[in-house]
Amino acid sequence: MTGGGVTGGGVKVWVLHLALLAVLFSAQFWLSPYHATNLVRIMVLAVFAMGYNLAFGYTGLLSLGHALLLAAGMYAAGLPAQLWGWSAGPAFIAGVAGGGLMAAAVGLLALRTAGVSFMIVTLMFAQAGFLTLLYFAPITGGDDGFALANASRRIFGFDLSADTPRFLAAFVIFALGLLASLALVRSPFGRSMVAMRENEERSRMLGYNPFMVKLAALACSGLYAGAAGAAYALLFGYAGASFATIQYSILPMLYVLLGGAGTTLGPFLGALVMFALIEAASGLTSAYFFLVGAALVALVLFAPKGILGTIRERWVRWLP
C-alpha cells in the first residue's frame, strides 16, 4: 500500500488537477464524436472508481460488493424517472442519495467484519441485491432492465441524449467528484481514513472511533457509486440488473489498482487505460479478456502500486 503524499505539494497539486480538468473539458472540441462519447463513459466509470478508491485505496476496505451501490444509484434514479416521470435533476439526486444510503446500510452490518470476511459479506449483499432486482422484475424489468424515456433525460432544458449536454453533464459530475475527493483526502478526515488503513489499533488509541470513520468513508464511497449509476442511467438511457453482477464489483477494483490505489488521479487513469486496452485488444483477438487477465498479472508483478503509485514512489513524491 502507498503511504504519504496526502498533504504535501500544496499549489502544485491543485494546478495539476485543474490542468487535467481543463484538458478533459477541451477534449469535446478536438475528439471525434465516437471518442468523446467513450470519454463520457470513462468519466462515469472513473467516478465509480473514485468512490471505490475512497473505501479501498485510502481506508483499506476491500469490498467485492460495490456493484450493489452502483445499481442502487442506477435504480434510485431510473425507477422514479420511469414510474413517475421525474426529470434528470431530481432523479440524479435520488440516485446519489440511494448509493450513499445503501452503502451506509451495508456498512452498519458488514463493518462488524474485516479483511476477507468483509470482502465475502459485501459480495453476498451484492448477490442478494442482484437477485432482489430479478425478484421484483415487474417493477425493475429484471435482467432485461428498461430503457429510460427521453422525456426523463432532460435537465435545465438540455437533452442529455445529445452529445454536447451529455459530455458537459458527465464532465461536471466528474470534476466535482475529483475535486471533492482531493479535498476530502487532504482534510483531517482523510488522514483518519488513511490511519484506518495503516494501523487501526493505533488510531483507536489516538482517539478515533474506527467504526464511525470506516462507516463514513464507505458512505462517501456509496455517494460516488450512486452518482455513477445514476449518471449511466440518465446519460445512456438504460438501467438493468447486469450492473449489479459481480463483474461490476471487480471493475472498479481493477481501475483503482491499475491507476494506483490511494492516488486521487489513479481511478481515472485506470479506467482510461483499461477502456483503451479492451478497445485495442478486441480489435486484435476475440480472446481479449485473456489479454486483460495477462495485463492484470503483469501489473501486479511489475508495478504493484499501479501507474501513479509507482510514479509517486520513484519520481513525484508530492502526488496526492
Binding site: 435482467d143 432485461d144 428498461f146 430503457a147 429510460l148 441524449s161 438511457g237 438504460y238 438493468g240
Partner: peptide, 9 residues
C-alpha cells in the same frame, strides 16, 4: 437484455 441496453444508443 443486450437489445434493451443497446437500442437507446
Amino acid at each position: 437484455h443486450v437489445v434493451m441496453g443497446s437500442a437507446p444508443r
